[in-house]
Design a binder for these strands. Structure first.
Lengths: 370, 370
DNA sequence: TTGAAAGCGCTAACAG
DNA sequence: CTGTTAGCGCTTTCAA
């Protein structure tokens, strides 16, 4: 770990600041207490609190007052134990690689934010969990130990088989990612192939012919994007050059290195299709460092339309994934499954957002943010 | 909600795909079942699983086999109910404004990632919760309803008073943010004033005199950064110009607008100190859109050293906050509080990372990423 | 070394 | 409308 912290100040001791109630940690008031004070039974309180119609309005009011004044809250743990539900769903981020800087891609954060909103709207809690490679069993545990009612996996990465197993066990599960043939689990994701195809076709339309594919093809979504890339080239009668197929992980640093070595390797190319905006941005940096101009010498297109894409310099042309509907859909489908309703995978349409980095001549007006 | 999804495919029905065990949803195996199979009592299983030394090794082995083969997992809900602990901690993101795009700043994500790691290392779960303005009571509920053992708030934003109340109730709570005088709760955060002061001093050292402060002073951390800004100016004998004090929210779009109107308002300045990297990046975009060069015409310094800062164009000079130690510290302090040990606030040192955007002449070598 | 019994705080029949 | 009675699945005395 890094160096010791520098300054230290405010002290938090267990002494109660002023003469406040020195209530012990176990001192929380329980339903029984409320019942006693209201002169009724626990059951009545329970009913009153759950809005049952079988309670005298007067009684309910009396109870409510007590509840408020003592700021009593039902213990969800006990409630869940009894009712068999947890009112919690897990969002799992399967890590792609050993020690990728945690959840670093802004795209994830945007999606996560929307998921969090949707989950909250349902009145559920959200458990966030990072799961290392191979350990899909960890996901099952979350359900088996009664911690959550269902799972949302962000990105199937290399966990495909593990996810299949979960789905086969009929655990409520929805995955953000690619729609694979024959898969047993439900996914929500953008139309990766079509999105990529359109992006690459756009580059070709700008007169580019030697287009680099920058991304990790082992991840299903990226493989589909690669398919789109190939399809677009084929449609234009261009033979894909394996030398322009550059694998890279998602971290900025990795992308930078990959791009650098491509350039230094003497490859010739006039465009780059990157599998994510973060990768695209790193690529641009590498290009500029080597004295290449974007988009004049090399046009670049990314994927995601992360917030920052519009603000980059040059502003990034990219394939937008709609994280807002995506997030909400993930949650809605999951709740449908929890409710026992059958669900099916959804593929979201993508949109090509053309900005400066792909070399389209535009006026002085900056293509704004979303 | 947006338009309807496009394509749909794989169906997830309740029918068990192949001849797998059509185990009902309640069909999970319980401790009692294991006990019966092992020919011992529930208590023994419990002891065996918790590593109690009062169990015959042979018995323990027999139980373990059963547990593994049935992939039995202890129900943490019941366990928690009995033991009074939840093994879960909450990370709360107090929202700054009504509908700021959820948790959009990459800085938060980086910090969150590290917190998640640290929490996982302790074997705890992490509940993610977004709380709207003013509703600090929501945080208390998390503890009162027995959902979590403690709270980590990321950014005090405008929730200061609410946090005070929580601390006064002696709930385990650690806050990422500014260290305010007399505050009752424990914080971890960077030395905002010193960091900002150094950044601004750096700009002054580059010969800049008219330096814009770009950020929201209502947030405690930002106010401290403003203090540092003023201090640096004062040290150089520069009178702060109120016209250069530009408030803006944290979203890229807001920063862009703020900067634009400053420029169009005809203000003259030769540098910008932005309260976050995201803001800095938007500011640069605005400057360039108006034909100003960075750093030649206007030098820019950000705050955070978000991953992308090194990759921006021009690479961003910024004040690095160490999210790795910060995250870990937040968690360690929280666990100390949960264990009943007294804790004190910590102020982390910052580091000024000088890159191209502040106009320092450097060779062809790019200041690399971290 | 093990088992029996008593709850953790709550809900849900089943009787009034 | 309300109270009584059983547990939800686990841990933990207290005895054996």
């Amino acid at each position: 770990m890094a160096d010791k912290p520098a300054i230290a100040a405010t002290t938090h001791s267990d002494a109660t600041p002023d003469g406040a109630q020195p209530r012990a940690k176990t001192g929380a008031v329980k339903m029984d207490d409320i019942a006693r004070m209201a002169g009724v039974s626990k059951s009545t309180v329970s009913r009153a609190l759950s809005g049952s119609p079988l309670v005298n309005e007067e009684t309910r009011a009396r109870i409510q007052v007590l509840v408020d004044s003592h700021s009593y809250r039902v213990d969800t743990r006990a409630q869940g134990l009894r009712k068999g539900r947890t009112h919690t769903i897990a969002v799992v981020i399967p890590l792609l690689h050993e020690h990728d800087q945690p959840i670093s891609d802004p795209f994830f954060l945007e999606l996560l934010g929307h998921i969090a909103d949707a989950v909250a709207d349902h009145g559920y809690d959200l458990l966030l969990s990072k799961i290392g490679p191979g350990r899909a069993s960890g996901m099952a545990d979350l359900v088996d130990t009664g911690r959550v009612d269902g799972l949302i996996a962000i990105g199937q990465s290399t966990a495909h088989l593990g996810l299949e197993r979960l789905a086969d066990r009929n655990l409520p599960l929805v995955v953000w990612g690619a729609q694979l043939p024959e898969q047993h689990y439900v996914t929500v994701g953008s139309d990766n192939k079509a999105g990529a195809e359109r992006a690459v076709a756009h580059l070709i339309a700008q007169g580019r012919r030697r287009i680099v594919f920058l991304g990790q093809r082992t991840v299903p979504e990226m493989r589909l994007r690669h398919d789109g890339y190939v399809a677009a080239l084929a449609a234009a009668g261009i033979e894909p050059d394996p030398a322009l197929d550059v694998p890279t992980r998602f971290a900025s640093a990795a992308a930078l290195t990959a791009m650098r070595s491509l350039i230094c390797g003497g490859a010739t190319f006039d465009a780059v299709f990157a599998c994510s905006d973060v990768i695209a941005i790193s690529a641009i940096r590498a290009l500029q460092d080597q004295g290449l101009r974007v988009p004049e010498d090399v046009a670049v297109v990314g994927y995601d339309d992360v917030q920052m894409a519009a603000f980059y310099n040059p502003a990034l042309t990219t394939v937008r994934q709609d994280t807002a509907t995506g997030g909400r859909l993930l949650v809605d489908l999951l709740f449908a499954q929890i409710a026992g309703r059958p669900t099916r995978s959804v593929m979201l349409p993508t949109e090509l957002v053309v900005r400066a980095s792909s070399g389209v001549v535009s006026g002085t007006t900056t293509p704004g943010p979303r």
